[in-house]
Design a protein around this nucleic acid. Sequence first.
DNA 1: ATGAAAGCGCTAACAA
DNA 2: TTGTTAGCGCTTTCAT
Lengths: 339, 339
Amino acid sequence: MSGTVRAGAAPTLEQVAAVAGLSRATVSRVINGSPKVTAEAVTAVNAAVEQLGYVPNRAARVLASRRTQSIALVIPEDTARFFADPYFASAVQGAATHLAGTEYTLTLLITSELDPAKTRRYLRGGNVDGALILSHHSDDRSYVQLGDEMPVVFGGRPVSDDAARAHYVDVDNEAVARLAVEHLRARGRRRIATIAGPQTMAAGVDRRSGWERATAEAGVEPGPVATGDFTPEGGAEAMRALLDGGEPFDGLFAASSQMAHGALGVLRERGVRVPEHVGVVGVDDDYFARNATPPLTTVRQPTAELGARMAQLLIARIEGVEVPRVTLMPIELVERDSA
Amino acid sequence: MSGTVRAGAAPTLEQVAAVAGLSRATVSRVINGSPKVTAEAVTAVNAAVEQLGYVPNRAARVLASRRTQSIALVIPEDTARFFADPYFASAVQGAATHLAGTEYTLTLLITSELDPAKTRRYLRGGNVDGALILSHHSDDRSYVQLGDEMPVVFGGRPVSDDAARAHYVDVDNEAVARLAVEHLRARGRRRIATIAGPQTMAAGVDRRSGWERATAEAGVEPGPVATGDFTPEGGAEAMRALLDGGEPFDGLFAASSQMAHGALGVLRERGVRVPEHVGVVGVDDDYFARNATPPLTTVRQPTAELGARMAQLLIARIEGVEVPRVTLMPIELVERDSA
DNA sequence: ATGAAAGCGCTAACAA
DNA sequence: TTGTTAGCGCTTTCAT
C-alpha cells in the first residue's frame, strides 16, 4: 500500500476530492462529520483518505474556521517547584488525560517574568480557544481579566479582588481545615496549632481561616501559627518556629502534606513523638503523606479529577455551554498513624 | 489609549499597513525582523502595531510560511506515573523553560493506547516542526521512524533495534553504575547486589550491565539481582526478594533513588542497618534521595539541563543546523550517609 | 445533497 | 527598499 503516498508531499483536500470524484466542499463536510452527505459520499471519501493517507492541515483549518482546537495551560514561572508539587503534577495529568480523549490540544505556557506580556500576547493572539490557569501566586489579576475576552478556567480560587467573576474548580478549603481540626478534636487534642500556607494563595488563606473558625467552634484553643510555603523545607522551618515559640500544643494542622512531611522530620529530631505527644493532620494524599514517618493522616482532595474537570468545563464553555462558575470537588479524611 | 482597539475584532496586518501608510509586505518584513527595511518604516510600523494592539495570527503565518513554530512533547500514556517521577517532571521543566525563551511553543502529546495512531497522525499532520520524545517503554520504534520524517530528539537512548539513527540526550548509564560500584568498593564492600530497572528501558539495561562489568573489573563479587520498575514500591518488593533469596551481600546498587527509597524502608523493617550492614547507592539526586533514611548516597544526573538540551538540539535541527546524534550529560556522585 | 467561489491573514517570490 | 501578486489548505455561504 505504499507508493500511493508521495513522501514529503502531504496530500490535500483537493487531492482527496479528485480521488473520490467529489468537490472539496463535500469532502470537507464528510471529514467534519456533517449530516448532509450521502452514505456513498462518505464511503468514497473515506476510501480516498485511507488511500492517500490524508491528514487535514490544522493551520488551514484554523484559519478558515476561526477555531483553534487548542487550549493553553498556563503555569507559573517557577516550573521547578511547580512540577515538584504533586498537586500540580496531578492536576496537569488529569487535564492532559481528559484532553487526550478530545480533539483539543494542550499548549504548555510558562509565564515568563522576563516578559510578562509575552504570555498574554500569545493568549490574545487567537492562538487558543481558551485557557486553563494553574496559579501559584496572588498576581492572577491579569488572568482574571483575560477571562473577559476568552473562556478561562482556574485551578484553585483566584485571589485578586475581581475574582468574583472567574470560573474555577477547587475544594472548599475551609472545610478541609475543619475536617482536620474535628478529627484532632475527636482524638482528644485540646490545643491545635497550624502550619499555614502562603497567605497570597486562596488555599493558604482559606485553610488558615478554616482552622481558626473550626477551633473556635469546637471549643478547643487555637495554638500558635507559623507560615510555610507549601514545601517540605518550609514546613520544617515553620515547625522549628512553632517549637521554639514555646507555646504548648498537642495537635497540629499542616496546610499541606509536603509541609507536614518536613514538620515530622523536625519533630523527630527534637524528640517529640507523633502521635503520642502531638497529633498531626495534613492536606493532600500524595507521596509525602504516604511515606511520612509515621504515615500521615491527611485530608484528601481529588487532584487529577480536579484537573480533568477544569478541562471539561473549559471545553463546555468554549462550545457555548453554560457551566457553574464555581465547582467544588469532594474531600475526605484519610486516617493513618499521625493522628 | 483605549478606544482605538475595537473589542472582538483582532486587527490585521492590513490595518497596520493602512495606519503605517505602507504595504502589507513591508509591514510583514518589519514584524519578522527583516534587515531590508528603513528605520522610518520600522518606526511607523511599530507605532501602528502599538496603536492597534496588533498581534499576528499564528495560523495564517503557519499556513503561509509552512513553519509551525511549535514542537511536540510526547509523553507516555501512563501520565500519573510519568509526572510522579521527578526525572520526567524535571526534564519537562527544563525543556519548557528553555522553550519559553524562544519563539517556539510546546504542545503536550499524551500517547493514547486507545488510539495509538492518533499521536502519529497529529505529528505527521504538519502540526509541529519537530518532536521531543520522553520514553518509558520499549515500543519506541514508531517514534524512531518518525525521526525519518521530521526532527526528533529523544530523552534517554531509545532501545528499538533501529535506534542507531536516532538523536538522543542521555547520560552514560554504564558509567553511572560504575561510579556507584566503585564508591561501594572504595568503602570496602565485597559483595555488591543490585536492584535493576526494567530491562525494557535503556537506563535499566545499561545500569545493570554497567554493574556487572564494574563488579568484574573491581574484582568484587556480583551479588544477587532483583528487578524493579523504578518506583519505590517496586524497589521495596525487589529488596524483599533479595533478602529472602538468602544470598549474602554487603553493598547494594539501586538503579533509581525511588527504588532505593523503597528498599531502605524494607531494610529498616528487617533490622538491616545502613550503612553498617549494607552500603546503598542509588541514582538521581531528587527528593527521594535527599529524604531517604538515611539520606542516600547517589549518582546525580542533571535532568533539567538534559531537558533543556533536548529542546535546544531540536530547535537547532529544525533550523537546519547539524548536531551530534548522541549527547551525554555529565554525572557525579553525591555522597550522603547510606554508603 | 452537492458544487462554485470567496475568503481566513499572512508570507514570499518577483518586479519595480 | 518597497509594492504587487499569488497563493498556503481549508471552511463556508450561496446557489443549484
